[in-house]
Amino acid sequence: MESNPTGSFTGWLRGEFGRLKLKQLRAVAAGLILAVAGLFGGLDTVNAGPTVFAADEPHSDGEFTLTVMRASVVDELRAGRRVVARAQPGRKFLGVVADVRNDGTIPGRLLGEMTLRDPDQNTSVGVFRIHDGSPATTLGPGLSEQLVFVWRVPEGEIHPDSEVTLRVTGKRFTELLVTYGRNWIDNPGDYAEITLPVTFR
């Protein structure tokens, strides 16, 4: 009668696993997972933190390329002679100026494109075009615009020697599950930060 080496090996393996305790089985399973993962290029690395970029340095989040230039604080928000937002007791307006280019193939939403890292008591006022002060909610594909992102902040929170840190979340172009078509969505855990000195005007 022919011996069955495969069957013998399988039987031996079953016997060895039968003798292992639960803790040992977990260790073996973890080792097997790591070994298999190694065959396919390894496990994903944990996000070590944000990408950091500097003023006047272009940064792409996938959808937009932003070149952030400066941050300043004013009492009242004006566009020429027109008052966009009046002064309020105990509040100031923080504006961050950036060149923004839409690198995608569809119009991109500008609101929320940049956020303050510490949002407590800070309210987004909107995004405005520098050249005429008009609101800018979207930017068409292939277009560039110089914009100011504005927040209302508590008066004592930012002072002349302050710095402000802003966050830009990475995006990916994907098929929408609830509605039809494709669009850019935030990619959780993928973000960049820029820290700027604040000037008062």
Rank of each mutant, 00 (worst) to 15 (best):
W151T: 06
D44K: 08
Q24N: 11
P107L: 04
T174M: 05
D75M: 05
G18S: 14
E2H: 13
L139A: 11
R86Q: 15
R101N: 10
T105S: 10
F9R: 12
G38Y: 02
I185G: 02
T6W: 12
V68T: 14
A85G: 05
G108N: 06
V46M: 14
E157W: 10
T6M: 14
V164Y: 01
K92E: 07
R152W: 00
V83W: 02
I185S: 05
N183M: 06
Q24T: 14
P135C: 15
I158P: 07
Y180M: 14
N4M: 02
R201M: 13
E175V: 13
R70A: 10
L13V: 14
L111T: 14
N187D: 14
W12P: 00
G31I: 01
T105R: 07
G38R: 10
T165D: 07
F200H: 10
L166F: 12
G49Q: 07
R182D: 02
F200T: 03
H59I: 04
P160A: 03
P5M: 08
L176E: 13
I185C: 00
L66S: 03
F200V: 03
T195L: 13
V178F: 13
T137F: 13
L39H: 03
A35T: 05
M69L: 13
T137W: 09
G80L: 01
V52M: 03
V96I: 15
D120S: 11
A54R: 12
V150C: 09
R78C: 09
W151Q: 02
E63M: 15
V28H: 01
L110G: 07
V150H: 08
K92C: 04
I106F: 09
R129M: 06
R109P: 00
L32S: 06
D118V: 07
V148F: 05
N102V: 11
T67Y: 07
E113Q: 14
E163C: 13
G126M: 10
G41F: 01
R86P: 13
G133C: 08
L43P: 01
F53C: 11
S162F: 06
L20I: 10
L34P: 01
E63I: 12
F93V: 05
G18V: 03
D132T: 04
L110N: 04
Y180C: 10
G126K: 08
N4C: 05
G140K: 09
E157C: 01
I33R: 12
R91F: 08
G112F: 11
T6P: 03
R70V: 08
L39E: 07
A136H: 01
T195W: 11
T115Q: 00
Q121G: 03
D186P: 02
S72T: 08
N187Q: 14
R109S: 04
T165M: 12
V127D: 10
I106V: 15
A37F: 05
I158K: 00
F128Y: 15
V46D: 12
D190A: 05
T195S: 15
I130P: 06
K92N: 11
